[in-house]
Design a protein around this nucleic acid. Structure first.
Lengths: 329, 329
DNA sequence: TGCGGGCATGACAGCGTTGTCTGACCACCG
DNA sequence: CGGTGGTCAGACAACGCTGTCATGCCCGCA
C-alpha cells in the first residue's frame, strides 16, 4: 500500500480509501490510484485489515470426519451460510478424539475465529474455560455437552425411533431387534433408550433384543442368527445409523432372512436396494444451516439465553418395512 | 500480552518467549509468567503472530460442492495433510460457477493463504494473473486449466473407460452405450472420447450410442428404450459418473431391461444393488492427498517445473458387467 | 582489580492496515 | 476583506505480536 501511495503521489490513507470505496476522494485521484494498483498488482492484505478491525470474518466447523456424508452435508450447509455473509469457513476434523478436538478448538480460538460450530466428540465440555474466557460463540450440533449451557442443535432421536417402531408395528411386527452404535455416543444411547421405551409403551414383548456397537456385518450376522431361531423369533430390525444399516443389509443378504428393516439416516441409494429401504431421515443440511444461523445471530449480538433446538425427523416409507416373505437380495 | 507483562513485571518480549517456549528465560521467571497467563486467561493472537511472520499456516480447498461424496473425500484427505503439518484448511464452494470461483480465489489470496487446491469449474484460468502476481502456489485437481502451467492431479479417465469397455467385451458385449455428463466438463469429454477410441480400437460397431448430459433418469430412460429396440440393440451401458450411474440404475429398473452396466466412480452401496454394480474406481482420497502433498512441497520451496500427475483407476468387478438374462431390480 | 564472555531481559521497530484528528484549500457570504 | 463551512488529503497511532539489537549482571580468570 505504501508502494502504491508513493507511486501515485498520495498517502497510504488515500489508497486505503480508494481500495475500500470510502467517500472523500476526488474521482481523478481515485482513478490515478486505481491505475497504480492495477499496474503494481497490489492486493489488500486482509490479515492486517482484519487484525486492525478485531474480527476475522471467519467461522469454523469441527466434526469427526469430513468424508462421512452426514458431516459433509452439514459442512456444505454451514459453508453456504458463511459465504452469503461474507465469511470464510475453516473446517477441521477431530477424528472422534476429545483431546484432538480440544486442541483444534484452542487453535481456532487462538486464530480468533468469530465463532465455531462443533459436533462434539463427547459430553465433557473440555474447552469450556477457553471458550468462556475468549467469549467465542459456539454452537453444538447433534450432541449436547455438559457444563455452561450453550446453543445446541439436536435431532429428534426419540421421535425418529418411535416412528420407526410404530411403522413396523403397523405392519404386524411384534418382535423387533435394535442395532445401535457404540453407547459412548450420546445419540446411540438416545436411540436405544427411545427404542426400549417405545417398545414398552406399545406393549411389545420386552425380550431384550438390543445390540450396541461398534458393529460390523459379522457382529450383526451373529446376533441375527440367534434372534431369528429361538422362541419368539424377530421379524424386523431397526438400525441406529447409516453405517449399521449398511452392515445389516449385508448380513441380511448373506443369511437370506426375510426380515423387515427400518434404518436410521437416509442414504442416497436407499431407493435402489431391493426392497427399497424405509428410513428415518434427519436432515443434516437443515441442521447445519440452523446451527450456522444461530451462530451468526450470536455474532450479531443476540445475547438471549442459550437455546436447544430439536430438529424433526421424517420417516421415509419405502418397502423394507412391510412384512415380507422373501429375503433381502 | 502487555497486560500479562505488566502483571508479571517483565517485558512483553519475555512473555512472548515464554509463550513460544523460546530459550533464554530463567525457570522461575517463566513460571511466574505462566501463572499470570493462566490467571488472566491470556491466549496468543495467532493473527498478529502470523502477520508478523508473513505466513498464515493456512491452505484452502475450492470445490464445486462439498456435499458431493467425491469432493468431501478429497476435502477430508486435504484437511488431514494440512493438519499433520500444523496448517488449517479453509474450504469454499464455487458451486460450479467460474465467476464465483474467481471471487473465492481472490478472497483467499487477499487472506494470504499459503496455498490453494482447486477443482476448477472450467478451463479458463480465470485467476491466473492474480495467482501469478501473488506467488500463491496452486494445485489443480481432477481437471486441467489453460494458461500458466501448474501442478495438476488428474485421474486416468482414458484408462478407466478402456478397462470398462474391455471388461464388457470380455463378457461378450459388442453393442455398448455410453452416458456421459455435460460436455462442458473436461472429464466428461475425456471419458466420452476414451469410449469412442476404445470402441474403434477394439473393432466394435461404431453406431453412435453416446448420450451426453446433464442426465436425469427420464433422459436415460428415453434413449435406452430406443437403443434396445432398433437393429443391433445394445446389451450394456457405461455411465460417466456416479450421478449418472444412479439415474441409469433407476431407468433400467423401470424398463426391466436385462442390460449390463459398468459405472464410473465407486459408491458406497454398489455391492448392495442387485446385481452388485461393477465400477471404475478413482480414489478421491488419494487424489486429495497427492494434491496436498504437492502443494506442501511447493510451500517448502520446491521450484521444479509444474507437473501433471495422472492417478490410476481400478476396475472393481462385481456382477453387473456380465451378460445377463434378468433385469436389474 | 580489570576484563571478556555468557546469560537473562528489555527497548524498539515493524508487519499492513484503518480510525481519528488535523490541515490545506476553496467557495461563499455579509 | 475576514469569517465560515465544506471537501479532499495526510500524519500518526494503534491492532498484537516477534526479530534484532542493546543492556546489565554475574562469573571466572589473569
Amino acid at each position: 500500500m505504501a508502494d502504491v501511495a508513493a507511486e501515485a503521489h498520495v498517502s497510504v490513507k488515500t489508497v486505503s480509501r480508494v481500495v475500500n470505496h470510502e467517500p472523500g476522494v476526488r474521482p481523478d485521484t481515485a482513478e490515478r490510484v486505481r491505475a497504480v494498483i492495477e499496474r503494481l498488482g497490489f492486493r489488500r492484505h486482509d490479515g492486517a485489515r482484519l487484525m486492525r478491525q478485531g474480527r476475522t470474518f471467519t467461522i469454523a466447523l469441527v466434526v469427526e470426519d469430513l468424508a462421512n456424508p452426514f458431516y459433509s452435508q452439514v459442512g456444505a450447509a454451514v459453508e453456504r451460510e458463511a459465504r452469503i455473509r461474507q465469511h470464510q469457513l475453516i473446517t477441521a476434523s477431530a477424528e472422534g478424539s476429545p483431546s484432538r478436538e480440544r486442541a483444534v478448538i484452542e487453535a481456532l480460538v487462538n486464530r480468533r475465529v468469530d465463532g465455531i460450530v462443533v459436533v462434539p466428540a463427547d459430553e465433557s465440555a473440555s474447552s469450556d474455560a477457553v471458550l468462556e474466557a475468549s467469549h467465542t460463540p459456539i454452537v453444538y450440533m447433534d450432541r449436547p455437552v455438559r457444563g455452561t449451557p450453550r446453543d445446541t442443535i439436536l435431532s429428534d432421536n426419540h421421535g425418529g425411533i418411535r416412528s420407526a417402531v410404530e411403522h413396523l408395528v403397523a405392519h404386524g411386527h411384534r418382535n423387533i431387534a435394535f442395532y445401535g452404535d457404540d453407547p459412548a455416543f450420546w445419540t446411540a444411547r438416545q436411540r436405544r433408550d427411545a427404542f426400549v421405551t417405545t417398545q414398552q409403551s406399545l406393549g411389545l414383548p420386552t425380550t431384550p433384543r438390543v445390540s450396541m456397537g461398534p458393529h460390523s456385518p459379522a457382529s450383526v450376522h451373529e446376533s441375527l442368527s440367534q434372534w431369528t431361531t429361538g422362541p419368539e423369533p424377530i421379524t424386523a430390525v431397526i438400525t441406529g445409523n447409516n453405517r449399521i444399516t449398511l452392515a445389516a443389509l449385508l448380513a441380511l443378504r448373506e443369511l437370506r432372512l426375510p426380515l423387515s428393516l427400518v434404518g436410521y439416516d437416509d442414504f442416497e441409494l436407499a431407493a435402489l436396494i431391493d426392497p427399497p429401504v424405509t428410513v428415518v431421515h434427519q436432515d443434516p443440511a437443515a441442521m447445519g444451516q440452523k446451527a450456522a444461523q444461530q451462530l451468526f445471530a450470536r455474532l450479531l449480538g443476540d445475547e438471549s439465553q442459550a437455546q436447544t433446538v430439536v430438529m424433526p425427523t421424517r420417516l421415509i416409507v419405502r418397502a423394507s418395512g412391510v412384512r415380507r416373505g422373501t429375503p433381502i437380495r
